[in-house]
Simulated assay, not measured.
Amino acid sequence: MSDPGGSLDIQLTPSSGGLLCTIASTRPVAAASAFAGRTPEETTARLPLLFSICARAQAGACAAAFEQASGVLPSLLIRGRREAAIAVETIREHLWRVLLDWPPILNEPPCRDDMAAVLALSNRILARLDPAGDLFSVGAGAAAGQAPGLDVLLGDLTDLLTRRIFGIAPEHWLNLIGDPSGFERWCRKTETVAARLLRSLLESGEASLGQTPITALPRLSDEDLIARMSAPDWAEFVARPTWQGQPRETSPFTRVHPLPLIEVYGAGLLVRLAAQLTEVATGLRLLSRGSAGSAATQATLGSANGIGLGRVFAARGMLAHLVRIEDGRVRDYRILAPTEWNFHPRGVVARALESLPPGPEDQVRRQAELLITAIDPCVAFKLTC
């Protein structure tokens, strides 16, 4: 049975000039057209059934698009609660990689018990943030104030991250990002799976693998993005997006961009993995301070002209939903996801893989899988070397 979310087929072929990478995608990038003819309420109810990965980020972009199209600006309390839920989801998505995908790279079993604890805690936190399950409904107005018991749950999450991920308080770990020598000491002396994987890259000389000339997606105006997603070739754009004729990257690395570490280790594998850890610690900080997601979503009061754009910074990058409403029903619905930017056939993943040095097939495969995991597709992939 085929995966309803699609998949990526990544092939590396040796050539006289080095590796050549081809990326083919079966992702259903036009699946949101199924919402045509639906009401906003029907669409928001069906969206989680169609897009289960990063479901709250998808719901946040959906609600924001409909609200902008209708000239509705949700309250600060609603926006803050939505952003907190997306922050929890982002932490969970990154920890899924750290606890389940990183250990096998070290020839160790996945940390399933730890991930089960993360899932249980995140579900309880999300239930406190959205007790009625209507937080992402269009024009939501029920959520208000501090969620009861949230501080205790966030304390439990902090303790878990301290013991199983960072080995030190997450807030203390964030200070190391600006101190390359302190960061390296942490890698070499800490025994969590995260530290040991980064240490293995330092010891193997693989820390700088995968540097590319692909630049970050710039901050785009609503007008520019709406125009591009509404153009006659919109289907090609959302399948293989470029900006000003060039593939771009949108990822934890482009959001965090830890310059001190880049200056020492280069913009490669080690810094990309560290960026995922940084987002975990930063998300926890924002949740604990009650300011989660202050930069996660872009809420704009629409003109009520029936056109709305919702943007959310999801775990893997910028997610954009564009909706056009006529007579209270969806005429067009389009989604631009971060995976299409990062796994563009000539994008950051392809260029990073082509930069790998020649070597035995098992070495190339291992390094390629590391890079793909670091940039992180939201779907399954098949790698052929």
Rank of each mutant, 00 (worst) to 15 (best):
A143F: 10
R128C: 15
I262T: 07
L77Y: 07
I226A: 05
L47R: 05
T158E: 11
G328N: 09
T90W: 00
N123F: 01
A31Y: 06
A304P: 02
L356R: 04
A24V: 14
T254Y: 04
G141A: 09
A63Y: 05
V349P: 00
G293S: 06
M115A: 07
G155A: 03
T339F: 06
G133L: 10
F66Q: 00
P109K: 02
L154T: 05
L157Q: 11
R311L: 08
T26C: 10
L135S: 05
R81A: 15
A24P: 00
F136D: 11
E42N: 06
G5Q: 12
L119M: 13
G80Y: 05
R196K: 14
P48M: 09
L157Y: 09
E42I: 02
W341N: 08
P48A: 07
L209T: 09
A142G: 10
G302Y: 02
D159N: 08
V238C: 02
T282V: 12
I372G: 05
A380E: 10
Q11R: 15
S137K: 04
P131I: 11
G283P: 07
L135K: 11
R82W: 14
D224T: 12
H172P: 00
A55R: 13
M318E: 14
R346F: 05
A374L: 09
S52N: 14
S181M: 06
I165Y: 08
V280P: 03
A132K: 11
A142W: 13
V264D: 00
V349I: 14
T297L: 05
I10A: 02
L353Y: 07
C111T: 02
V256N: 05
R38M: 11
M1N: 12
G60E: 03
E42R: 12
I226R: 01
F136M: 13
V118Y: 13
G5F: 09
V280Q: 04
A296I: 11
R219K: 06
I78T: 15
F51N: 01
A63L: 03
V256Q: 13
T215N: 10
L261I: 07
Q211L: 07
L174A: 06
L20A: 08
R163I: 12
A169F: 04
S15W: 02
L220R: 11
T242D: 01
E369F: 01
R346C: 04
A380P: 00
D179H: 07
L76S: 11
R124D: 14
A239I: 05
L8M: 13
R255D: 04
D179I: 03
S52Q: 15
G317Y: 06
S16H: 09
T26S: 15
L12D: 03
R366D: 08
I307F: 00
L202H: 08
L217N: 01
A235W: 03
E326D: 13
R199Y: 07
E354S: 10
E354Y: 07
L225C: 02
G139F: 09
R285V: 09
L126Y: 10
R163Y: 09
R366H: 15
G141L: 07
P338Y: 12
I335H: 07
N305K: 08
L161K: 12
A87K: 04
W234Q: 03
E354M: 14
V88D: 04
E203R: 10
P131M: 12
L259G: 00
D101L: 15
L209H: 06
G155Y: 00
A216I: 06
D233E: 14
R188S: 03
H172C: 03
L106T: 13
A292Q: 04
P104Y: 12
P109G: 03
L319Q: 04
G167P: 01
R188H: 02
D362P: 00
